[in-house]
Amino acid sequence: MADTPKQIFIKGIWKDNPVFRQVLGICSSLAVTNLLTNTLFMAFGVMFVTAFSNFTVSLLRDHIPARIRMIVQVLIIASYVMIVDILIKAVNPDIHRFIGPYVGLIITNCIIMGRAEAFASQNTPWLSFLDGLAMGIGYSLVLIVIALVREPMGFGTLLGFPLPGREIWWHQWTIMVMAPGAFFMLAIVTWISRKIQLNLEKGGK
């Protein structure tokens, strides 16, 4: 029944991708994908937190009473993020000024909660850690794809650098900077990847 590490990664990145298969973590994908730099920060944070909170929840899974498992999971995740947040703030405040706004978004990211509930509470710590990592990567890839479209269209830049020939072809498309742009991009990504998955399933039969 238990998955091998390879299967876990395939599931996290493609088959059960948290964004377009499980529809989790949408709020944060909307907020941060208008600039690629912000997206990378967020992606890294989520990967890190999902992996470690999955690990911790899995360690404690035999002791958590079923009735209050939600509270306990949320508590573990939030404490994790806050401790890391305070440490970064103390050690390097300049980096913290960049990533500070994401902290709240990471805590409320439902991917973390969803995986703690669906995977970590039934699997061993090591596998849960891998699952968290794989889900984080799957989430990151989708976000990066969206940011790769939104930043050039909205700002005419990539990673903050102006694109070549910007003056000639680029006209600011404000909707791409704002949230509706993220909704439409997310819809397109979901559509295309689901279509590909459907086709693969048909081909497999």
Partner: peptide, 16 residues
């Protein structure tokens, strides 16, 4: 349940 929740809140509260 009560002991567990008090304990875990205490541990994490203390850590933070």
């Amino acid at each position: 349940i009560l002991i567990f929740i008090v304990l875990i809140s205490f541990v994490f509260g203390l850590a933070i």
